[in-house]
């Protein structure tokens, strides 16, 4: 029992501060090719907004608006159409937990 606990502790230390692939729903890491996952400001400022500090419900709501063409967009309308509402919710919840 004690050894199992030690193993678990070692594992949690090993993965502390990292985001494992299995935690992220499919497509989640696509966001970060353009959107920063850090709340640290980029210098000079990047015109593409960072995705940290937003609650999941806000991100999911914006994605749904992109999908329904209810929100002006360049690429995001075309990208959002590639994800179901459930997939959008899962990505939004994952994003809301990230800050690197």
């Amino acid at each position: 029992m004690r050894r199992r606990l030690a193993a678990a502790l070692a594992a949690s230390l090993l993965f502390a501060g990292t985001a494992r692939a299995a935690d992220a729903p499919p497509g989640a890491w696509s966001c970060t090719g353009c959107h920063a996952l850090s709340s640290a400001p980029s210098v000079p400022p990047n015109p593409i907004p960072a995705l940290t500090g937003r609650p999941a419900v806000e991100i999911a709501g914006i994605m749904r608006e992109f999908k329904s063409r209810g929100r002006p967009a360049t690429v995001m309308g075309r990208i959002a159409l590639g994800f179901s509402d459930a997939e959008i919710d899962a990505i939004a919840e994952w994003l809301a937990r990230q800050d690197h």
Partner: peptide, 9 residues
């Protein structure tokens, strides 16, 4: 925690 341990093992 449990998934992390599974990963490690």
């Amino acid at each position: 925690m449990s998934t992390r341990r599974r990963t490690f093992l």
